[in-house]
């Protein structure tokens, strides 16, 4: 009879102790960062958005938190999901791997949210094939369109170029909620439907593995995923231009060189010193951090223009 009451009592006491311990630990960590932090800016900053941009933000938040008391949180809901929260007013900034869509801009206007676009870095959307594929080394935009647009037939490599093998093409593409898909859709498919045979995945590593495993496979994803796997997959040059740091930054790798943005709520910068302080840090360091995680830094003029825009908002 007494047994279970005793048990419940200890369980409650136990959880209270665990909670107490947690609280203490967080208090301690605040204490240490206080002594390290120079500036007295405090507060919190919330962001969300593209999973492509997330590694850059992770690096920035990691470095920023080591020298500031500002509490930054960034979600990874995808470009579209991020804008949804931005429109709902729950985030201060929203990361995007494509420019904002007209409908999203319209909804923001309706919600009375003014925003500013900041360029963070460039990504070269990379088209990859299996290393055993020795025919498709260079594709034109026309070829890509022919390969990826649904036309009701089963596509073979020989349909694209009669000299290529008479084998079915196997497709791997990022999921439709990703900015990567949106960008490809815009510049290559031009809003036509993508081949229905394509395997779609939100996890780019699935695409990498798919292309690694099939001689006839073709896929596309961000440059960082190609960099991390360049021993086992092969990048296709587009219109004779290979994707690499120089061609992506200069824009020669066209049209698949794409900008990565973050959109910031103007009122948040004006009213919350923490947002201003964090964004300043982001613009100052985005280029270096982008390089560190596998993207390409933008020209310094772009960051200077970003900074000017930020100062104008304060």
């Amino acid at each position: 009879m007494k047994n279970w009451k005793y048990f419940m009592g200890t369980a409650m006491l136990g959880s209270a102790l665990i909670l107490g311990a947690c609280g203490e630990e967080s208090a301690q960590s605040e204490g240490t960062s206080n002594t390290e932090g120079g500036e007295a800016v405090e507060g919190s900053v919330a962001g969300d958005g593209s999973s492509t941009v997330a590694p850059i933000l992770e690096a920035l938040v990691e470095e920023y938190s080591a020298q500031s008391d500002v509490q930054v949180t960034v979600g990874v809901s995808g470009t579209g999901g991020g804008f949804e929260k931005f429109i709902a007013g729950t985030t201060d900034f929203s990361n995007a791997s494509r420019p904002i869509k007209d409908e999203e801009a319209a909804q923001l206007e309706e919600a009375g949210i003014d925003y500013t676009e900041f360029l963070l870095a460039y990504d070269g959307l990379t088209v990859v094939v299996n290393p055993e594929n020795d025919w498709a080394t260079d594709l034109t935009v026309e070829d890509l369109k022919k390969i990826w647009v649904e036309d009701g037939t089963t596509k073979k490599w020989s349909d694209i170029n009669p000299e290529w093998p008479d084998e079915e093409i196997v497709f791997y593409s990022p999921g439709t909620d990703s900015g990567t898909f949106d960008y490809f859709n815009e510049v290559i498919l031009e809003e036509a439907d993508m081949v229905s045979a394509a395997t779609l995945s939100e996890d780019d590593n699935v695409l990498v593995q798919g292309v690694q495993g099939d001689k006839n496979a073709i896929g596309f994803f961000g440059y960082a995923y190609y960099l991390a796997n360049q021993d086992t997959i092969k990048a296709v040059s587009i219109e004779g231009v290979e994707p690499n740091n120089e061609t992506i930054e200069s824009g020669d790798y066209s049209p698949l060189s794409r900008p990565l943005y973050t959109y910031v709520k103007n009122s948040a910068v004006a009213e919350n010193p923490a947002v201003y302080d964090f964004m300043k840090y982001v613009i100052e360091n985005a280029g270096a951090m982008a390089e560190a995680v596998g993207y390409v830094t933008a020209p310094q003029e772009e960051y200077d223009a970003d900074m000017e825009a930020l100062e104008g908002l304060k």
Binding site: C22, E30, A46, L57, V61, Q71, V74, S77
Partner: peptide, 20 residues
């Protein structure tokens, strides 16, 4: 958690139940 927008990039611990 994904749907309600729980962040992934976070460098501090919550201090009470209203923290993220």
């Amino acid at each position: 958690l994904v749907v309600i927008g729980v962040p992934v990039i976070i460098q501090f611990l919550p201090a009470d139940v209203m923290d993220t």
